[in-house]
Design a protein around this nucleic acid. Structure first.
Lengths: 145, 145
DNA sequence: TCTTTTTAATTAACATGTTAAATATCTATT
DNA sequence: AATAGATATTTAACATGTTAATTAAAAAGA
């Protein structure tokens, strides 16, 4: 039964395999920084957005709030982030990088940009723009954002 | 610092978000069958390819052999699959669906095809073909397959 | 103001991802 | 045939995904 419904042709699997192929280029960098993909996205979100409450940060980093809760506790113990209660809303926790966290991200970000630049060079800037457009279109077609 | 390196524009995150949007359409089906995404891919692989050794099946289902090992034990206890040693190579384990497993997959496959057909209708057959082509191209550019 | 509802974050329980190591079997070399 | 090296699977330990429940605080209504 080899048709467009077959597993190797399915959209979800192709998105997964392609993402894995992309991440393979970043894994050495992450391994040398001793960070998981999710931890990297959290620190990157804080680095780009500055102090952010947990809910927004989870959304930015594309992880569940429950996962961020665990990651944040871990990072606070390692003194990579600070956790403070929002003075306007005691339910919210504001996260921000410590100096240690910023130092860690400085180096990793330089490395990450090099890898991404090489990826764009290999894939082609136009191909990348087209692909990102198609992905946006698909998400819109599915009624999400 | 909003440039092409910014997290919300990064390729890996977009592939992740888009995949999540696609899977959102399938999750109700999976929930009603009480299957995780990975369990679904394993059963689907067996349904499409018949009896398969663990290594090949893990590759087909796009999960790690270690994960398949746990899933297979779980499924064997629930009598959804059989596990037999390969008579030609005692290192290999051949997995196959039981009758129970095939019955489960019959219904779920019908449902899955309906959902996928609706997705194609919403996204457009040409857009889907283009996207799959671009994903292939990207994987090839990255030197994978 | 008091109660109810909603929201933000956390915790719990189980499944999977990831890296490393262990086990068993096969293959190649001598 | 005996050994060394390679392959297939499994197990272990820890991090994250997922669903559900819990806690605390804000917002809404009576």
């Amino acid at each position: 039964m080899i048709d467009k419904y077959e597993i190797n042709r399915s959209l979800a699997i192709n998105l997964l395999r392609t993402r894995e192929a992309v991440m393979d280029r970043f894994r050495p960098m992450l391994a040398s920084a001793k960070l998981t993909e999710q931890q990297w996205r959290v620190l990157r979100g804080l680095s780009e957005h500055g102090a952010t409450d947990a809910g927004k940060l989870a959304s930015i980093a594309c992880i569940l709030p429950q996962s961020l809760s665990r990651i944040a506790k871990n990072f606070e113990e390692k003194q990579l982030i600070k956790m403070e209660t929002d003075s306007n809303d005691a339910r919210k926790i504001i996260l921000s990088l410590t100096n240690n966290g910023e130092v860690l991200m400085k180096g990793a970000t330089v490395e990450s940009k090099k890898i991404y630049a090489k990826l764009i060079e290999d894939f082609g800037e136009n191909n990348l723009a087209d692909l990102l457009d198609k992905l946006d279109l698909l998400r819109n077609s599915l009624g999400k954002e």
